[in-house]
């Protein structure tokens, strides 16, 4: 059992939880993820790691309440335990020392972006950041990022905070102004990562993305997380979750993400009824 040591609501739909999981924390690196089950008959869901502390044996997860399992998770509080918590899974992000990078975090995608950018900063790389969301309430972790990011640009769809518009508009503007970056790290909804990649490809600007598809075991056993990268089938759980954004077949992945839409809608209703 894995105790919940702290829980903070980052906004009405996103929680941060600190979990005691020494076997996960001891070898954690930026870019990796965990799989958890809330209770004994629960479903296995993957979540990216936001922070970790090997000494304290803790791992921080940040999740958006999107379905049955994240709903159940958000009903848990400090002092409760999670049934299962396994990891660290996936390959660590390859962080190459360079001069300057820009991170792009869409919504809750800011969470897995945080340890990656922090690592870049620790290696002496200058880090800029674009945070984007539908509205002000959904922008998370700005204060934490501000500890080491040189420039932070905020965009919201409705203009309630920062500039009104999309993260891609901001990136275009920055590059047009002559800002130079060695690499873009974009993590957020698939559609955002797709359009960031489409934008940076003609510029030949290296773009790293992190994928979080449907999976069961997270160790390469089920193959449910298949994605086409550069024309080849990859398993996100063991070959990723980070990939070269210019090589990912986003349309296929978006379609695969929708495979259980009908069932998910159903189980959500059931969950709400019993709650």
């Amino acid at each position: 059992m894995y105790p919940i040591l702290a829980k903070t609501k980052l906004n009405h739909n996103v929680d941060e939880m600190v979990i005691r999981a020494p076997f996960v924390a001891r070898r954690c690196e930026p870019g990796q993820f965990i799989i958890l089950r809330v209770d004994p008959e629960g479903e296995r869901i993957p979540l990216t790691i936001a922070e970790y502390d090997a000494k304290a044996g803790t791992v921080t997860i940040i999740y958006q309440i999107v379905g049955y399992t994240t709903q159940r998770l958000s009903e848990k509080n400090v002092g409760d335990t999670l049934e299962d918590f396994v990891g660290p899974l996936g390959k660590a992000t390859e962080i190459h020392p360079c001069k300057r990078v820009i991170g792009i975090g869409g919504g809750v995608g800011a969470a897995p972006l945080y340890p990656q950018l922090k690592k870049f900063h620790e290696l002496g790389v200058s880090v800029d950041l674009i945070l984007g969301a539908r509205n002000k309430d959904l922008i998370i972790l700005e204060e934490k990022f501000s500890k080491f990011c040189k420039n932070i640009y905020i965009t919201t769809d409705d203009g309630s905070y920062g500039t009104k518009g999309l993260v891609t508009d901001k990136l275009k503007e920055l590059v047009a102004k002559g800002e130079k970056y060695d690499e873009v790290i974009a993590i957020g909804p698939l559609i955002m990562m797709k359009f960031v990649s489409l934008l940076t490809k003609p510029w030949n600007l290296k773009t790293n993305v992190s994928l979080n598809p449907v999976m069961v075991d997270g160790t390469g056993m089920c193959g449910g997380c298949r994605v086409t990268v550069g024309g080849e089938t990859k398993f996100v759980c063991v070959d990723g979750p980070d990939f070269d954004g210019h090589q990912v077949d986003y349309d296929e992945l978006m379609r695969r993400q929708g495979m259980y839409k009908t069932e998910e809608a159903h189980v959500c209703k059931v969950g709400l009824r019993s709650a």
Binding site: V216, M221, C222, G224, V227, T228, R256
Partner: peptide, 16 residues
């Protein structure tokens, strides 16, 4: 066509 929706590995199908 192996990544179409509706294609499973037996592992995934049986594990689920």
């Amino acid at each position: 066509g192996e990544n179409l929706n509706g294609v499973y590995s037996a592992n995934e199908f049986l594990t689920r």
